[in-house]
Nucleic acid binder design. Sequence first.
DNA 1: TATTATTCCTGGGCGC
DNA 2: TGCGCCCAGGAATAAT
Length: 280
Amino acid sequence: MPELPEVETVRRGLTQLVAGSQIKKVDVIYEKMINLPKKPFEDALREKTIEAVDRRGKYLFIRISGGLTIVSHLRMEGKYDVEPEGAPIGKHTHVIFHLADGRQLRYNDTRKFGRMNLVHTGDEMSVAGLRNIGPEPTERDLTVDYMQTIFAKSKKMIKPFLLDQSKIAGLGNIYADEVLWLSKIHPEQPVNLLTLDEIKRLRMNIITEIQKAIAGHGTTVHSYSNAYGEAGSFQNHLNVYGRTNKPCLRCGTPIVKIKLAQRGTHFCPQCQVIHGEENE
DNA sequence: TATTATTCCTGGGCGC
DNA sequence: TGCGCCCAGGAATAAT
């Protein structure tokens, strides 16, 4: 399931593979995938050029000549593949970009969760999820001050809080579990009761973990692969996600899986303990 | 306003 | 073998 590092890997792959390519025409096969009716979407992209691919959080911005941008979200299993013209079309291919050089950029998505919004460049904020998107999880953008401020204002549990893209951009279910384990914070801990020390620890783990994952070309779980078709290698580094009943790598206590806000949540009941303010 | 629940999808795993 | 059932989850949307 693509999280920020996977999306960044896709961005880099697309940049290498199709930036500068001309689009001859576009075929939308699954219309619910796009924000416009099929015909205007296809017509707007005909004979245009893919200029660059940017990213914000888990959203890809595919820059198109003539001042257009395709805001693409891969959601669970979306991926881009570049294939020669004659290659058989899979049953999960939903949008095909026919390139002038004979190749095709195909959007494949088993669960049909992904979405593409064609907007005028500069109007990316018209896409619902981007209107209130939080800072990127980087040393520069995710400051201690910012985290202290937003944490103080909410009594929500930290796990669902981390998944809220309007607070911090880019974290998904896997990384949320991982950074909480690394930071020794219980997923049900109310955010307003986190100590400054915990906030700083969490921040550094978020930043370094995302960086490490980008360097490792993203996590691979289920059918995800990047735009090259290569599998990511980060799954080897998972400490807690998917390790239900297996020993905690720090203390040996079996990892517990619970459900929080409809999401599977893994943690070590020994290392990650809920506390109140009095335990500072 | 803030928070929580529902919804979209399909492949895979399970029990029978 | 094959059927029915349940689970996985990001984020828009609806509901509380």
